[in-house]
C-alpha cells in the first residue's frame, strides 16, 4: 500500500517538467563578432532543450537579410549600399580594417574549424530557434520582408518582444 503511494508521487513530480525553459535574445548589433556570440548562445540554448526566440532589430537585421540591395528613398538606398549585403558581409566590431578584418577572422576561424556564421545560423534554425525581424526598423531602413530569408517567423514589434521576455527564463541584448 505504502509502495503504491510512493509511485504515484514520483509520477506526479515528473509531469510538470514538460514545460521547456525559454530564452529571448535581442540582436541589435550587425557586427560579425557580436552576431557570432548571439548565434553561439542561441544554438547552445536550443541544444540544451530550450525554446529560443531571437528578435532582430536595427543593425541586427543584417543577420536575416539576403544578399540583395534594399532601399527606396535616397537615404534608404544609401543604407542599402553602405550597410548592404547579408550575414556574410558583417564586419567585426574591432579590427575591421575596411573588410580586411572580416577576411582575417574568417580565415582564422576556418583554420581552427569553428563553424562559420551562416553555418551557425543554419544550425540554430535546424534546432528550432525562431528568428523575428523588427517591423519598425525594417520600415525605417527600408528593408522589406522579401529581402529577408524565408525562415523569418514573423515581423513584429516591441509588444511581442516584451511578452517573449516576460515568459523567458533569461533575456539577452547583444
Amino acid at each position: 500500500m505504502a509502495q503504491v503511494q510512493v509511485e504515484e508521487k514520483v509520477e506526479a513530480k515528473a509531469k510538470p517538467e514538460v514545460k521547456k525553459k525559454k530564452v529571448s535574445i535581442v540582436v541589435f548589433s550587425g557586427d560579425f563578432d557580436k552576431l557570432f556570440a548571439a548565434y553561439v548562445i542561441a544554438t547552445g540554448a536550443a541544444a540544451s532543450n530550450m525554446d529560443v526566440t531571437m528578435f532582430h532589430t536595427f543593425w541586427g537585421l543584417r543577420a536575416l537579410k539576403k544578399d540583395v540591395s534594399t532601399g527606396k528613398s535616397l537615404f534608404g538606398r544609401m543604407i542599402g549600399k553602405i550597410y548592404g549585403g547579408d550575414i556574410n558581409k558583417a564586419n567585426p566590431s574591432k579590427y575591421g580594417f575596411g573588410g580586411m578584418g572580416r577576411w582575417m577572422f574568417k580565415k582564422m576561424m576556418k583554420s581552427k574549424n569553428v563553424a562559420s556564421l551562416p553555418e551557425l545560423r543554419q544550425t540554430a534554425l535546424d534546432l528550432g530557434v525562431k528568428v523575428y525581424g523588427c517591423q519598425m526598423s525594417m520600415d525605417v531602413m527600408e528593408i522589406p520582408r522579401e529581402t529577408m530569408i524565408d525562415e523569418v517567423s514573423d515581423c513584429v514589434g516591441v509588444g511581442f518582444l516584451i511578452e517573449q521576455a516576460q515568459q523567458a527564463d533569461f533575456t539577452m541584448f547583444i
Binding site: T43, A47, S48, N113, A115, T123
Partner: peptide, 11 residues
C-alpha cells in the same frame, strides 16, 4: 569547437 560538440550530442 564550441558549441558544436554539445550540439552534435544533443542532435
Amino acid at each position: 569547437l564550441c558549441p558544436m560538440p554539445m550540439v552534435r550530442v544533443s542532435q
